[in-house]
Design a protein around this nucleic acid. Structure first.
Length: 654
DNA sequence: TGCGGATCCCTTTTT
DNA sequence: GGGATCCGCA
């Protein structure tokens, strides 16, 4: 928030809330202990309200550790606690919180025996889950000649969606993948195999964290009792993005004390694809009778022409808490809608405008380019490089998902969880002359040894002399002899891995920099488990292109971001590219009213990121291979808007 | 059993 | 343009 000074509050002093907040915000901040629902429009000071409420609670005498602040990204929750600390004092730092997943993880670690993992568990990220599913799929595939099964990533999506939408596999397949309907049986068997295997190997995927947490709360009254007593005040951010299980978890945690505040904006619900249900926010007052509803409609971010467009785009949305954003600040230019002659023309337009802005004195880090999908920025990235404009790309494919990072992590994981077959397989397959069959044999033998990774040294293995395998033994012996600090392990693994890296990847210098950065992140951790948990639950959100950049290097760089990753952020000038009907909304979303509505909300989120100026561009005459048709109309969400809200332009670079 | 080459398919968003 | 899969050779 840039309005009204945040500064000037010294530590521990009483805060003059009525001077810092508007009447609606003030009411939300000072509200007593019943259920409270705050519908906060984009840019209306949502974070501000949450942080002030935390500070207010602490000032009122609520113990900081009795406050639980749940959010969707750890960055968001840390930022909130930081701001609350600035307002009041360091006590706010003791407030409990994090993402649903990380909070679930920390509780489950404490009670792992109660959920059937007496020796603990390790967390699988999405690609680990896919790999495990792949193994089971393959075993079943050859045994049953089950041809034309969905690929492992599709299976992972189906499984996850069934959990998050609280429905059956059959339902998801029927709804989203009818062409796999005839495979229901086999898919179901892979699903069962996946569940069994995870349990056997003590592995939890992202969904399991929520499922087990929910089960723990629902079935263990003593645990629930202890938690509801220790967290007397619960605040949930971005409530519109909660799914069925998360809403249940919130209810169970709130328990009888019902000091529960949720904040959200149904118009900004953009995670339905992973089971988020905006109805949770609509139905909150039913779930918690006596809910006080407060709407924040005054916008402190954008100029009126931008808000007018945003309001017009969201207006046709069905089922919503209707609200209308307004601002007291006057002036501002109309948003521009630019038809570019080609994709590259679009990139050139954006690049040229960015250069113009920079010359006018707008810092690069106050400008962002937003898009529906990460690959849509590829062409623009080429143009930006040509113009020597430095940028940071957020969203899309993550670092921790790239092969070289996963390789290093796998070597570390076998120390954290020696039963982790996936990591063993990954480690072993890197060695020449070792394929899946040999890897399986080695794993089984080492596991029987029961001595952790060093079982590899003592086990009697019948394999041909193999220099690479001997090197692995040396690495493990060396790691065994050097328990501290854990970053030392990272260095040893990297030394071991370097020769492979150099032969396997042409771009190894860039990848090496990533790995060195990874090790410097390790230096911040005392315990290997904590490091690995964080890498799975809250990895750096940067995409591959940047390398693992530090915050220091992000200074004064242009931001390229998916709209999903841009949520909650704001910039002086925003470009939205690929606003082409068929791409945004995407062709797959058009036939289904629900997914189409979600695309509309996504456009709304994108527009409301802009403070002062907004450029929306689309290339004309794009051939869509899937439908064999020509796309040339701007996004229907913009076409349906009154003429006067947009300035239309045509751009050709020559 | 491991590996490299040929061929077919699909192509979003994230914890 | 990249993954998954299949096939043939060492």
């Amino acid at each position: 928030m840039t309005h009204r000074g945040d500064q000037g509050q010294s530590e521990g002093k009483s805060i003059r809330f009525h001077e810092l907040l508007n009447p609606d915000q003030l009411e939300a901040v000072t509200f007593g202990d019943g259920p409270l629902l705050v519908i906060a429009g984009a840019g209306s000071g949502k974070t501000r309200t949450l942080t002030h409420r935390v500070a207010h609670l602490v000032q009122r005498g609520v113990a900081p550790h009795a406050i639980l602040l749940l959010s969707f990204t750890r960055k968001a929750s840390q930022e909130m606690l930081r701001r609350a600390s600035e307002l009041l004092d360091r006590r706010c730092r003791e407030v409990a919180g994090g993402t649903f997943h990380s909070f679930a993880n920390s509780v489950l670690r404490r009670y792992s025996a109660k959920i059937g993992f007496p020796h603990g568990f390790s967390i699988m990220d999405r690609s680990d889950a896919e790999d495990l599913i792949g193994l089971i799929r393959k075993a079943l595939d050859t045994a049953e000649q089950g041809r034309h099964l969905p690929r492992k990533s599709t299976l992972a999506t189906i499984f996850s969606r069934a959990i998050n939408k609280n429905t059956t596999l059959e339902e998801i397949i029927y709804e989203d993948y009818p062409h796999f309907g005839f495979q229901n049986d086999l898919i179901n068997r892979i699903w069962i195999g996946y569940q069994d295997r995870k349990r056997e190997l003590s592995l939890l995927d992202f969904d399991d964290l929520l499922v087990y947490f929910h089960r723990l709360l629902a079935e263990n009254l003593d645990v629930r009792d202890r938690l509801t007593k220790s967290y007397t005040h619960i605040l949930v951010d971005e409530y519109q993005d909660t799914n069925f299980i998360q809403a249940e978890i919130v209810s169970l945690l709130a328990g009888k004390n019902e000091s529960i505040m949720v904040v959200g904006d149904d118009a900004q619900s953009i995670y339905a694809f992973r089971g988020a249900n905006y109805k949770n926010i609509i139905e909150f007052p039913t779930r918690f009778p006596g809910t006080r509803l407060i709407k924040l409609e005054e916008n402190y971010r954008s100029l009126q022409p931008i808000l007018d467009l945003a309001n017009a785009v969201i207006e046709p949305a069905t089922e919503k808490y209707s609200k209308c954003l307004f601002t007291r600040r006057g002036g501002g230019d109309l948003p521009v809608l630019v038809a570019a002659t080609s994709e590259n023309a679009q990139s050139r337009y954006v690049t040229q405008e960015i250069i113009r802005l920079r010359n006018e004195g707008v810092a690069l880090d106050r400008i962002a380019v937003l898009f529906r999908a990460s690959f849509q920025a590829f062409d623009l990235e080429v143009e930006l490089n040509r113009a020597a404009i430095s940028y940071v790309k957020v969203g899309g494919f993550k670092f921790t998902e790239s092969a070289h990072i996963k390789d290093i992590l796998a070597h570390l994981k076998i120390f954290a969880a020696p039963q982790d077959q996936l990591s063993w397989t990954r480690v072993l397959l890197l060695i020449e002359k070792i394929g899946p069959a040999t890897a399986q044999r080695i794993y089984t033998t080492v596991l029987k040894e029961g001595a952790g990774p060093s079982g590899l040294l003592s086990a009697k293995l019948k394999i041909k002399p193999n220099a690479g395998f001997e090197r692995l033994k040396q690495l493990i012996a060396a790691m065994d002899a050097t328990p501290h600090p854990i970053s030392r392990w990272g260095e040893m693994v990297l030394e071991y891995y370097k020769p492979y890296l150099e032969t396997a990847y042409d771009d190894h210098p860039r990848r090496l920099r990533d790995l060195e950065q990874l090790i410097s992140i390790m230096e911040r951790y005392d315990r290997l488990d904590d490091f690995l948990d964080d890498m799975a639950l809250d990895p750096p959100n940067d995409s591959v292109a940047n390398g693992l950049a530090t915050t220091e290097t992000h200074r004064n760089q242009l931001v390229l971001s998916t709209i999903h990753s841009a949520k909650g952020l704001e910039w002086h000038t925003v470009f939205i590219i690929w606003a082409l009907d068929g791409r945004f909304p995407s062709i797959q979303a058009i036939d289904n009213p629900d997914t189409l509505e979600e695309e509309r909300r996504l456009m709304y989120v994108a527009i409301t990121r802009a403070q002062q100026s907004l450029h929306i561009t689309y290339p004309v005459q794009i051939f869509d291979r899937a439908t064999q048709s020509l796309l040339y109309e701007p996004s229907r969400f913009l076409e349906d808007v009154p003429e006067a809200l947009l300035k239309r332009r045509f751009f050709t670079p020559y």
